[in-house]
Design a binder for these strands. Structure first.
Ligand SMILES: [Zn+2]
Ligand SMILES: [Zn+2]
Ligand SMILES: [Zn+2]
Ligand SMILES: [Zn+2]
Lengths: 174, 174
DNA sequence: CATCGACTGTTATATTGTAACATATAACTC
DNA sequence: GAGTTATATGTTACAATATAACAGTCGATG
């Protein structure tokens, strides 16, 4: 455990957990570089538009809705229209770089896009923050339960609503 | 195991499973009576409108969307407007008589409204049918996983997409 | 009957998401 | 590199989903 690591690629230590504030910039940069690498390896194009959307989703402390993203894109390019956002999101979701949160019509950056996995989110009803649970055992048990009734699983989504650690015990915070 | 039971309250034997076709009428009637009893016990009003929506949801072989419900209501009452449907659905969901399926903007009748439980659905991408999984162990494991990271769960939703038994092995059926 | 609260009827509007088609850019072939 | 194809973008219009707001109604309660 040294102090600040030197010039190595800065590891993302936020992992989307309900943790104290930190300088999120390096996490974002690291994530974007990782995404670029993944897309290059897969032979798909992480175009500037898609990269921009991914960056916005990563920078946000909580899931963003499509039209909120659109507004942000319009700051730099006021003519941008809805299909731009939805196309970029479609791509990013396909590539596993973003998850859609069904119960909120919102979109969150995937914290571990390297391995394919199911969408599992803990959603704080007070502060609006979301963290990926990403519990393999839960996925497995769901799959087992489904197969137990003869159902062939292709995809699963879990969305858990409640209070994050910071928002428990009293109506403070934001 | 007699033939057809006489005048006893006909038990619902469908339970929403991926089972062979059957005469669904008695299931619906039984469910509606049960719902009426539950609401009476709770001191809430299962008004004709709400009952009608519940019946439509129950009669359908797959989840219905709000505007599909609206169309059906309009058959008898052509002036009916969207808020009617959404209000009825709000009530029914609150009372645990209907579940909302987030990934489809659709609504399905709860097959076991007696005990409170989380929404867990197996959704066939081919025929569109849905069944409630209602696995207590899954709920418990999810809760445990969330609490493991300090998250206080108030509600969870699980939606599993894939192929039901009847739709596996070949692109037949509907 | 007067009042209160919950339910309904109605209009208008907000929010979320797509269809469709023209244009531009990249990738691929010869 | 010119021709060709596939993919991505720009743009308009619209569909689908959901809610706000307010006026009326109906039922219980004192
Ligand atoms: Zn993820
Ligand atoms: Zn919180
Ligand atoms: Zn249920
Ligand atoms: Zn099926």
């Amino acid at each position: 455990m040294q102090n600040t690591p030197p010039e190595q690629t800065p590891p993302c230590h936020c992992h989307g957990g309900f943790i104290a504030e930190h300088d999120h910039g390096p996490c974002v940069n690291h994530a974007l570089e990782r995404a670029a690498t993944l897309c290059r390896e897969r032979g798909v194009r992480l175009t500037p538009q898609r990269l921009r959307v991914l960056e916005l989703v990563w920078r946000s402390s909580r899931p963003l809705q499509a039209y909120a993203l659109l507004e942000e894109l319009r700051v730099q390019q006021p003519t941008t229209a809805a299909p731009i956002v939805y196309r970029a999101l479609d791509f990013l979701i396909q590539q596993g770089l973003v998850h859609r949160i069904e119960s909120q019509n919102s979109y969150a950056a995937c914290r571990h896009p390297d391995a394919v996995h199911d969408g599992q989110f803990l959603l704080c009803t007070h502060c609006g923050r979301a963290v990926e649970l990403e519990s393999r055992p839960v996925s497995e048990q769901v799959r087992a339960a489904a197969e137990g009734v003869g159902f062939e699983v292709s995809q699963q989504t879990l969305e858990v609503h409640g209070l994050c650690p910071r928002c428990q015990g009293g109506p403070q915070h934001g």
